[in-house]
Nucleic acid binder design. Structure first.
Lengths: 135, 135
DNA sequence: CCGTATCCACAATGATACTG
DNA sequence: CAGTATCATTGTGGATACGG
């Protein structure tokens, strides 16, 4: 009995913690921003409205599936709008909302830190790896 | 021949883009920050040096494996230091470096935006889902 | 042109058990 | 106390083919 208690308590702790994380605003935001394509699409849209294929060209490496998925989550979260013009063939424009615009300074804070300090990180990394090898 | 060319060009584009992303400082930073546990460990260490088990208690939901892995990457990237005191049993302290400290304002920018705007996002999300259901 | 649907490969995470 | 090693599971993204 006693042996199972520890495992059981860990399990409960994890469940509670998962709930806590799921409700944590910072984590929710980080989950969005850290998506492989969100940042790039945000950057593409920061220059004004864009058509689907324009974004696809700007974010050259993205697959159709992931671009659509990314744009859908942005729309769902109120960060971008999707406007369909029912011509033939159809035309779809995406544009940042005010909420989406307000995210740009945050992205820039990240970019600024990265450009200022990532070389330090890279240096630390190679030193660390070096020491590992030499013993 | 012509049919394979399109797929081939996409493949090349993806390879080049992957290389571009791998070299992009912002993406490298986002990859770190977005790690499930990095933000939480950073927050734990923001109050000063901590022992391994103290961090484990603060970040209640983390497994031993992930905590160790997270701390190792922070150390490797020069964001935290690891100090071993060879008593019996051994004592290990972790502490943020200046570089690690400089990351805290960035985390706070993220946290501030999240606390100010995530309810808007949640609202937009539920409206979007509602419209989906009602047709 | 702008997607959706399906399948598949691989990386990330956690549970568990063991060590100095 | 502070890890390491292994296995099982899940999630994420890409390729491909098809639809409005």
């Amino acid at each position: 009995m006693a042996t199972t208690t520890a495992a059981r308590r860990r399990e409960i702790a994890r469940t509670e913690y998962d709930a806590f994380l799921a409700a944590c605003p910072s984590r929710q935001l980080l989950d969005r921003l850290s998506d492989k394509w969100v940042g790039l699409v945000l950057a593409a849209l920061s220059n004004g409205p864009q058509r689907y294929n324009e974004i696809a060209r700007t974010v050259a490496g993205v697959s159709q599936k992931m671009l659509t998925q990314t744009l859908r989550t942005l729309e769902r979260d109120g960060l971008a709008t999707r406007t369909v013009t029912p011509t033939v063939p159809v035309r779809v424009d995406y544009e940042l909302t005010d909420l989406g615009q307000s995210l740009l300074p945050v992205m820039r804070a990240i970019k600024d830190w990265a450009e200022a300090h990532m070389d330090d990180v890279l240096l630390a990394r190679s030193r660390y790896d070096m020491e590992k090898m030499t013993g």
